[in-house]
Design a protein around this nucleic acid. Structure first.
Length: 923
RNA sequence: GGGUGAUUAGCUCAGUUGGUAGAGCGUCGCCCUUACAAGGCGAAUGUCGGGAGUUCAAAUCUCUCAUCACCCACCA
């Protein structure tokens, strides 16, 4: 074995072995039950980012844990076709050749996308393998594969037939670059600064004018009314009159509507029903005409005056302002902050636009979905997120599911020439279902479905639905959904609605919501900020030049490059070393506190890489001392030392804790327990305590055997406990350690997860070992604080030792001598006079180290005073507490007694230390 | 405007039913002690955001203020 842990040399090989042997595939019926997690399908042409890596670590840890617990376990892999995102990538590639998708035509373009999928679709799944993900690759799915397309059709058709999908002309969010409608969720509104223009609209009867305020002057070309509040004294008399719309000449009414806020602006609102969501509703209430003035590119169309036609809306905005000013109708311009809606993919300003679209009538689906969370059929972890869920579900709007793009599930609807709609699986089905003549010309709807429509079916479509497959029966409903809060609405809510509708059961019983991965400064990672860390670079390492290059190429704003380069060189002067997958995974686990964002700092990862190294070297020690030796597998004649009994007892507690923490999704606490048990209990104490037993001749063979056996058994258990989080190193080491523990197996993956045994819990051993530790630590402390060389063996005198102290000392002499580095020990009766010494206390017993030539008198005085000071502080606090009659009367007896004991201990210690102080001062 | 969460050691965060505050990283001192210097031993560090209340007892429960973050929303 190498002296240093090197992740590179072990990870790839084990993954190959696991996958080739089919260990990831569900192993079949089990008494322990079924366990299933659906991966949130990443974009098929995407690459793995930190968010994925974090999420996948959690899912894999859960999956491995449950698999080891003997459950029939499935982690379902797959990818999403990601309609708009993927189409955009391919269109960009075409654009580089000066082509558009229209040059190719629909079929050829779709072929091109499939080609791209074939070329890049393996990237993210390969990266998932690098993360160690134990996904059932043999059954990988894609949202556009045949089975899933069948599911999409079936759902669409059934919802249509039930009246839950309808087609309607409505105002939608229109992306003028992508030429498609977007759902509300795909529109991101951000505050930008703009202006508020005030215009005078002349009354048609020439009796004056009204002043309206707008942030969008160009839309005035489509105004069909001006609204005021019905109670507004300023304008009451004008209601019902008309104004003549400047530049257009149209007469439009002044209407009353209490939507208008009298306080805001002038209290008069221009109404453009075809280009504003509020105006649209007002238009409907007042039966106003809707005049669309925009083209699909958001240029002004032919329903506007000649001079503006064909020009971009922003160009027209300037013209309108200018023209109104010329007419003397520009009242004022004010600076104004407003929310600007942009498409989340294209970044273009989204226009409310009147088009025909398909919608899901959502209220009837939402109702049971709300109930499922209310009644606990589905639990959010942390529970708080249910509030967010309810908030949204209670205000949910119909879902616009049609997109005017080509890459996706084409809507299974056909039209005849009269415009009648027929919905069925295919054209032949349509004719049959609707009994249409063979010669009736039908054309299919050009639109495709929102990507999230097929994602919403993921928990059952991947298992074979609509077929009633064995997998579906076994794994639906799935156990838990692991996802980020950002897609609760996009995805989680919709899966719940569709799952309940089509499977008549919830899609998952729990939803574990994790936080966002941020950089070391707490910033969101983003390409444009240049602070992105690639999980693969953490695993394999990356040199500075490559990292700089990676961060500065392909930027949306190339001028940011120098700044990013500078920051990167400063933060990673030596690049990033290869930490390995296990270290990254353990870091994620340790940081996965409930619902909090995760701040990922390379220092932290390095710390857990060191932890891997610790396990590696502990194993080296154990192997060195047990290989080719009797580890008590066939020989039951083992005598267990205090240390053996203690570490086994501690191990049982840790096993209980880890189970509890995994079951409660507290990976941070699990990681913490694993870390401290392995490092502090097992390595710092137990391995050191094993040394005298194994190396000193006066220990019997059965004692040595007992210690060897314990060393190996505890280490083997540690490896299994750590396996869900650190799969590679544990597998690698397990193959060396397990045989020594008499365990045979092809892989640690299929070994049982450790379960505690009450018989091995040993409170006496823990108490006694604590005494030993206190003894040793007391001496170490004196040594360190008195500047005695660590290697110098010390003479020690014990005074005031009880019978128990004596017994404990005798039983553990070897431990104490070795770990505290002693030269000699002698007992002193109470009436004997001790030499001038430095003192440590273990309970009532005094540990004395004679000063003689070793310890400086003043240093000892300082040390003692400090300790006395501390004790006095605490004693003061405790006395005050007991002095309070309320405390003694009302606090539980146990608490009061504990306080009394504490005081007794402190008083006794204080007395001894003061005595000592006097003695030494007197020298 | 509505909602949610946060504020604890220099940094990032734990803190389970109220009972004298913990970890990792960092810092300081001494050590290459035969598993590990990616290490060992030891040490320091907190008016638990401010204020008020409930209680014998509050980081923990209630109210209030402040600051920050995120989500949702139609103020022209």
């Amino acid at each position: 074995m190498e002296t240093t842990y090197n992740p590179q040399s072990i990870e790839q090989k084990w993954y190959q072995t696991w996958e080739n042997n089919g260990y990831f595939t569900p192993q079949g019926e089990s008494d322990a039950g079924n366990y299933c997690i659906m991966i949130p399908p990443p974009n098929v042409t995407g690459t793995l980012h930190m968010g994925h890596a974090f999420q996948d670590t959690i899912m894999d840890a859960l999956t491995r844990y449950q698999r080891m617990r003997g459950k029939n376990t499935l982690w379902q892999p797959g990818t999403d076709h990601a309609g708009i995102a993927t189409q955009m990538v391919v269109e960009r590639q075409l654009a580089a050749q000066d082509k558009s998708r229209h040059d190719l035509g629909r079929d050829a373009f779709i072929d091109k996308v499939w080609e791209w999928k074939k070329q890049s679709g393996g990237t993210i799944t390969q990266q998932l393998r690098r993360m160690g993900g134990s996904l059932d690759w043999e059954n990988e799915r894609f949202t556009m594969d045949e089975g899933l397309s069948d599911a999409v059709h079936k759902v669409f058709i059934q919802l249509y037939d039930e009246g839950l999908i309808y087609r309607g002309k409505r105002l939608v969010n229109w992306d003028p670059i992508l030429h498609t409608a977007l759902s509300d969720l795909e529109v991101i509104s951000e505050e930008e600064s703009g202006h508020l223009w005030h215009f005078r609209y002349p009354l048609s009867d020439g009796s004056g004018h009204l002043v309206v305020a707008t942030t969008r002057p160009e839309t005035m070309l489509g105004d069909t009314a001006v609204a005021v509040h019905p109670d507004d004294e300023r304008y009451k008399h004008l209601i019902g009159k008309t104004i003549t719309l400047p530049l257009v000449g149209r007469q439009i009414p002044i209407i009353a509507d209490d939507y208008v806020d009298m306080e805001f602006g002038t209290g008069c609102v221009k109404i453009t029903p075809a280009h504003d969501f509020n105006d649209y509703e007002m238009g409907q209430r007042h039966d106003l005409p809707m005049i669309n003035i925009l083209t699909v590119d958001a240029c002004i169309n032919d329903d506007a005056p000649q001079k503006y036609r064909g020009l971009d809306r922003y160009e027209v905005r300037d013209m309108v302002v200018h023209d109104l000013d010329e007419l003397g109708l520009l009242d004022s311009i004010k600076e104004h902050k407003l929310m600007v809606p942009r498409g989340d993919r294209s970044g273009s300003v989204v226009e409310p636009y009147l088009t025909d679209q398909w919608y899901v009538k959502i209220a009837p689906l939402a109702e049971p979905a709300i109930k499922a969370v209310q009644d606990g059929s589905i639990k959010f972890v942390p529970e708080n997120w249910s509030k967010t869920y309810f908030e949204w579900m209670n205000n949910i709007q119909d879902w616009c599911i049609s997109r005017q793009i080509w890459w996706g599930h084409r809507i299974p609807a056909w039209y005849d020439e009269a415009g009648n709609v027929y919905v069925a699986d295919n054209e032949a089905e349509v004719r049959k279902k609707y009994q249409l003549a063979d010669d009736l010309t039908l054309t299919q709807d050009d639109d495709v479905l929102d990507t999230w429509f097929s994602s919403a079916l993921w928990p059952f479509s991947t298992l074979g639905w609509p077929e009633n497959t064995e997998r579906l029966k076994q794994f639906y409903p799935t156990s838990v959904l692991v996802t980020g809060f950002d897609i609760i609405f996009f995805w989680v809510a919709r899966m719940i609605m569709f799952g309940l509708k089509f499977m008549d059961d919830v899609p998952f019983k729990e939803i574990y919501i994790h936080g966002l991965v941020r950089d070391a400064d707490g910033q969101k990672m983003s390409k444009s900020k240049g602070n992105v860390l690639d999980p693969i670079d953490i695993i394999d390492g990356i040199d500075l030049e490559s990292l700089v290059k990676k961060r500065t190429t392909g930027l949306m704003q190339p001028k940011m490059a120098p700044k990013i380069e500078k920051a990167t060189r400063k933060q990673y002067p030596d690049g990033i070393p290869a930490f390995g997958t296990d270290a990254l995974r353990f870091t994620f686990a340790a940081l996965a506190t409930t619902g909090r964002d995760v701040v990922l700092a390379p220092d932290r990862i390095a710390g857990y890489r060191n932890f891997c190294n610790k396990i590696w070297n502990a194993t080296r020690y154990v192997l060195m001392n047990t290989e080719d030796q009797d580890t008590g597998i066939d020989n039951q004649d083992c005598k267990y030392s205090l240390a053996d009994r203690w570490i086994l007892s501690r191990l049982q507690q840790v096993e209980d804790n880890i189970q509890k923490h995994f079951n409660g999704y507290r990976f941070d606490l699990a990681a913490q327990d694993l870390y401290s048990f392995v490092w502090e209990d097992y390595c710092d104490w137990y391995l050191e305590l094993s040394k005298p037993v194994l190396m000193k001749d006066h220990f019997s063979e059965s004692e040595k055997r007992g210690t060897r056996k314990t060393l190996v058994q505890v280490l083997e258990t540690i490896l299994r406990l750590n396996h869900p989080i650190m799969p590679f190193i544990t597998e690698e080491l397990w193959h060396s350690v397990a045989p020594l523990a008499g365990i045979k197996g092809d892989t640690i993956m299929q070994q049982p997860f450790p379960v505690s045994s009450d018989a091995l819990k040993d409170a006496d051993a823990e108490a006694e070992l604590q005494w030993v530790k206190n003894f040793i630590m007391g001496i170490r402390r004196i040594r360190s604080e008195s500047d005695i060389a660590p290697g110098k063996p010390l003479p020690v005198i014990l005074q005031n030792a009880s019978e128990q102290d004596k017994q404990r000392y005798e039983a553990n002499e070897s431990f104490i001598f070795t770990l505290a580095k002693l030269e000699s020990i002698s007992f002193l009766s109470n009436d004997e006079v001790a030499p001038e010494s430095s003192t440590a206390l273990v309970g009532e017993m005094k540990i004395l180290i004679p000063l003689a030539g070793l310890i400086d008198k003043d240093a000892e005085l300082t040390r003692l005073s400090k300790e006395i000071g501390k004790l006095e502080d605490n004693l003061g606090k405790s006395n005050a507490k007991l002095g309070n009659p309320g405390f003694v009367d009302k606090a539980p007896e146990a608490v009061v007694n504990k306080e009394r004991e504490r005081i007794a201990e402190m008083e006794s210690a204080l007395e001894k230390l003061k005595e000592q102080l006097e003695k030494i001062s007197a020298l």
